[in-house]
Design a protein around this nucleic acid. Structure first.
Length: 261
DNA sequence: GGGAATGTTCGGAA
DNA sequence: CTTCCGAACATTCC
């Protein structure tokens, strides 16, 4: 459950399920993802309720009635499941049980997620040096962030310290929708291109949330369902190409997206 | 079997 | 200091 839209959906899911119920039991089938001692989680959560959620980039923060915050990062494969009368989901790392006999499991197959305990939203943001959330940025703020940047535009978009929430898949998508090559240097982009990128950033993220992350329902001129080397480009007669940018597999269309060095 | 898969972090190189 | 690159983490799927 990786990038901003998917985390937004997890927030929605939490809001509709596990809030305002007394936590009667906790267990940690695998404590390796915990970023604080188990006992601290127990102390902050046992007998308490989850009160509200907020999201920052790819992090889901949950306020506990004890005053502390429970924070989930989903890595590549993190998942929340609220359920009753079922076996514990596979790869469950943390399990909360409520007084209505429901359970909330955080599972993570590849173990790349993390579970934190935080003092507050601002504290967490500051401690992890996270940039403002991509959906919260104004156009002016976005343009300011890109000023004096020298690396690739893809590197900038996916830098969580600069702005948070955009990952590998959605950065490729917004650049494709703008016709900007992922390796283009930020300082070579025109003002108009940066403004267009801002618009597409919002548009792509909001669309994904609207479609509840269901990729088969994304517009047909999106790149997302063509993330392979040599696929037909959905916008032109060219073929998609896979390259590495900022260490990540990147897909784009060389004829729609020309590099600016 | 090899390579990739939505993520972050760290060390070293340029 | 900034950016880039590869490796590491662990597991599944093609």
């Amino acid at each position: 459950m990786p990038e901003l839209p998917e985390i937004a959906l997890n927030k929605k899911y939490m809001d509709a399920t596990a809030l305002h119920k007394k936590i009667t039991q906790l267990s940690f089938p695998d404590a390796s993802l915990l970023q604080a001692p188990k006992s601290h989680f127990e102390k902050a959560l046992k007998g308490e309720e989850l009160e509200e959620t907020t999201r920052l980039g790819k992090y889901l923060l949950i306020k506990i009635s004890s005053g502390k915050w429970l924070v989930f990062h989903f890595g590549m494969t993190g998942k929340l499941e609220y359920y009753q009368n079922r076996e514990t989901p596979k790869y469950t790392k943390m399990l909360l049980s409520f007084d209505n006999d429901y359970h909330l499991a955080y599972s993570c197959r590849r173990k790349l997620g993390k579970i934190y305990l935080a003092e507050g939203f601002e504290e967490f943001k500051k401690e992890h040096e996270l940039g403002d959330d991509a959906l919260e940025l104004s156009e002016k703020q976005f343009l300011n962030l890109l000023t004096d940047k020298s690396g690739s535009i893809k590197g900038a978009l996916t830098d969580q310290h600069l702005l948070s929430g955009i990952g590998n898949v959605y950065s490729d998508e917004m650049l494709y929708q703008c016709g900007i090559h992922p390796k283009s240097k930020v300082d070579k982009l025109s003002e108009a291109e940066k403004k267009q990128l801002y618009k597409q950033m919002k548009k792509v993220l909001k669309m994904a949330i609207d479609k509840e992350g269901e990729r088969s329902e994304f517009p047909s001129d999106y790149l997302i369902n063509h993330r392979k080397d040599g696929e037909d480009c959905p916008k032109c007669s060219g073929k998609t190409k896979q390259i590495k940018v900022s260490g990540r597999s990147t897909y784009f269309c060389p004829s729609c997206q020309k590099e600016q060095k």
